[in-house]
Design a protein around this nucleic acid. Structure first.
Length: 298
DNA sequence: AAACAAATCAACCGCAAACTT
DNA sequence: GAAGTTTGCGGTTGATTTGTT
């Protein structure tokens, strides 16, 4: 496919915007709408490329931009959404009204990454002690995410196998992974597709597994490389699952942690309910009795 | 007060999807 | 359906600000 340079002119201005330029852009967009970004600079009397104008408008000048530090709720949402979709900043931004993808990206690359690094550093000390309990990865954020995903996947498979009756989980998983809206639409009478399975088998889940594994490997190698063969999910087993390595952890503690994860997962589901394809969720959402973020925003 | 380091964030760049002809 | 064009996205850069010595 052909592609012309974004800015064909050699003398277009770059760098920080002046208040005058901002005013020209705001005045023009408010009067005429954004329309064609390529033509906009000329029409607005700006010596900038259209791309630069669009970026300035969407990331800074838009009237609905929310300034100021991120709230704890926003922080939490970013963490949860990032755990699901990864570096899809625009998708994350879509769930945080007034926040831009650029802002969230910057926030992630500075604050959140820093916090995760600090958490990992703190975990190094704990890992040595926990290794003897068979829970070496418990404090590592990346490994914990991985464990959550794995547990969720297993739970989803079990749930799906109950729902689908004669249909094998493997078949359902493949269908879910290649799934499409047409599949969902055509199968209106089928059991609802499972968000965990769909996400887990999608590119999102795939990229998550890759990044989480490599991160977990980096975290664990110095401490206990021999543990790599053990399934990560074993560190996050359900209470009462005596076949797992987590049997070393007390049942009460495991139950608490498992409940926390279920809560987290339920919140994740709510965040996606009605958006990004609008695939239906399992009934747990309704059982929560909480207001979805979406309904709050809509 | 000066020098340096670290953190922050606006803006740029290149790619690819989406759209138009 | 191919080619051309526009738009949106994610990664990265670099200037500025803030903190520390």
């Amino acid at each position: 496919m052909g592609r012309t340079p974004c800015c064909d002119s050699k003398v277009l201005k770059k760098g920080p915007w002046t208040p005058d330029e901002d005013k020209l852009l705001v005045d023009y967009v408010q009067a005429n709408g954004s329309g064609n970004w390529r033509l906009l600079p000329k029409l607005a009397g700006l010596n900038r490329c259209g791309k630069s104008c669009r970026l300035r408008w969407t990331n800074y000048l838009r009237p609905d931009i929310k300034r100021g530090p991120f709230t704890p709720e926003e922080h939490k949402s970013i963490l949860q959404l990032h755990a699901i979709v990864g570096n899809k900043w625009s998708m994350i931004a879509a769930q945080l009204p007034g926040r831009t993808d650029n802002e969230i990206k910057n926030y992630w690359n500075t604050n959140v990454k820093k916090q995760l690094r600090q958490g990992q550093a703190a975990a190094v000390g704990e890992q040595a002690a926990l290794a003897s309990l068979g829970g070496g990865a418990a404090s590592c954020p990346a490994a914990r995410h991985m464990a959550q995903w794995e547990t969720a996947r297993l739970e989803a498979e079990a749930r799906l196998s109950l729902l689908s009756g004669t249909t094998s989980v493997a078949t359902a998983s493949v269908a879910a992974s290649s799934s499409s809206s047409s599949t969902a639409a055509a199968g209106g009478a089928e059991a609802p597709p499972d968000i965990y399975l769909r996400l887990w088998n999608s590119e999102v889940g795939d990229s998550f597994r890759k990044s989480a594994r490599s991160a977990a490997r980096e975290d664990q190698e110095p401490a206990n490389a021999s543990d790599e063969a053990a399934p990560v999910s074993a560190t996050f087993a359900r209470p009462g699952d005596d076949s797992s390595a987590a049997s070393n952890v007390t049942a009460a503690a495991a139950a608490d942690e498992y409940q926390v994860f279920l809560d987290l997962a339920a919140e994740d589901f709510e965040l996606f309910h009605g958006r990004h394809g609008g695939f239906p969720l399992f009934p747990a959402v309704d059982m929560l009795g909480e207001t979805s973020l979406y309904t709050a925003f809509d």
